[in-house]
Design a protein around this nucleic acid. Structure first.
Length: 318
RNA sequence: GCCGCUGUAGCUCAGUCGGUAGAGCAGGGGACUGAAAAUCCCUGUGUCAUGAGUUCAAAUCUCAUCGGUGGCA
């Protein structure tokens, strides 16, 4: 029905599991007419280049990226930061007449970008987290769960007794506000300042795993051990927020255990990447309104995008 | 060539006195309210190498065949 007059910004959201083939596709589809908003919780960190499969300089020159290299590894980045910065970037890109393209593999960021964070829920508080962590170590997670069950029976009923981080987050909210986390309702309506085009990329599992294996080999050969060594020599311990990531944590674990070889480490990185890819797919499958494609079906994807843009491109034209 | 050991889940292996099998890892499925590459939950059917025999009953005992492996030549 023609082009509706609307000032919503049209957005392409393109996601898929690690190593599915997003990078090549995105360059072909959007070079010269779009800019990328990175949706990857590790690529936001400086110095984590090889292990996060960050696009290199020449790639970034061909296709500008936002939200890459914006934090040091000891800084905690989070979902709220992501949404705020992504909103700013989207407005900026669209304002220059280009297509904003959110692409990456962090499903949690995609989800919360679309539906928005729970209104009124407080941000994380490092002091409370530290205190909760101490209590967890002293008294065990069961005790904290029991406390949560009293404070927020609804939320406690939804999560598992062993789910440390969620239990601690819920208690953190309760201790800050005196209100249960579940009282800050998050409805699943998409935020209405955008028109969304959700594209999921996937492959046969076997094929995906082969690509993951190959990518890890390439990372090892192209200097991942050296990248991690440099981080360690700069005084980092592996406990920093940015380093709790596949491809980095395995090296620090290797150091702790002492008895692992480089090839054992590579094996673990491969395995953890496969499991991660599986979790990503589970999460992406739960998002509503996604059109799924094989990343090599470029023509189909391109037609799909063009048809979306022709319906919603009012604010991009003239 | 001879003697010994061995063949069970994708891999490594367990399986008692014969009663049609179970661990670890890998794998599979799922959850997701400001740490998310995080955190957490659920999940084990497989020609017991093949063929024949003994037996009410064979992964288990016997024989043959075909693999693997160690020793002696």
């Amino acid at each position: 029905m023609g082009t509706a007059t609307t000032n919503k910004i049209p957005l392409i959201l393109l996601f898929g599991p690690t190593a599915v083939g997003k990078t090549d596709l995105v360059l072909e589809l959007f070079r010269g007419r779009g800019e990328i908003i990175n949706v990857d919780s590790v690529q936001v960190y400086r110095k984590l280049d090889i292990g996060s499969a960050k696009p290199d300089k020449s790639y970034l020159e061909k296709l500008p990226h936002h939200l890459i290299d914006i934090r040091d590894v000891h800084e905690q980045f989070n979902t709220a930061d992501f949404i705020r910065l992504a909103d700013e970037a989207a407005a900026d890109i669209a304002g220059r007449g280009l297509i904003p393209v959110l692409t990456g593999g962090t499903a949690f960021y995609f989800k919360n970008f679309c539906i928005g964070l729970a209104q009124g829920a407080p941000p994380g508080d490092p002091a409370i987290r530290e205190k909760l962590e101490r209590e967890r170590l002293e008294r065990g997670i069961q005790t904290l769960w029991t406390e949560l069950e009293k404070a927020d029976p609804v939320y406690a009923g939804k999560i598992h007794v062993n789910d440390e981080l969620r239990i601690m987050r819920a208690l953190e909210v309760f201790r800050q506000t005196g209100r249960p986390l579940s009282s800050f309702g998050q409805d699943d309506k998409f935020r209405d300042q955008y028109e969304y085009c959700l594209i999921g990329l996937t492959r046969e599992r076997e094929e995906l795993y082969r690509r993951i294996d190959r990518r890890v080999d390439i990372m090892m050969e192209s200097g991942l051990p050296g990248e991690v060594k440099a981080l360690a020599e700069a005084g980092l311990t592996g406990k920093e927020p940015g380093l709790d990531a596949i491809g980095y944590r395995e090296f620090f674990e290797m150091k702790e255990r002492g008895c692992m070889t480089l090839s054992d480490t590579a094996d673990r990185i491969r395995r953890n990447s496969r499991r991660y890819a599986k979790r990503q797919l589970t999460f992406f499958h739960s998002l509503p309104g996604v059109s799924w494609f094989h990343p090599e079906k470029k023509k189909e994807i391109s037609l799909f995008i063009d048809s979306f843009l022709s319906k919603h491109s009012v604010s991009l034209l003239t």
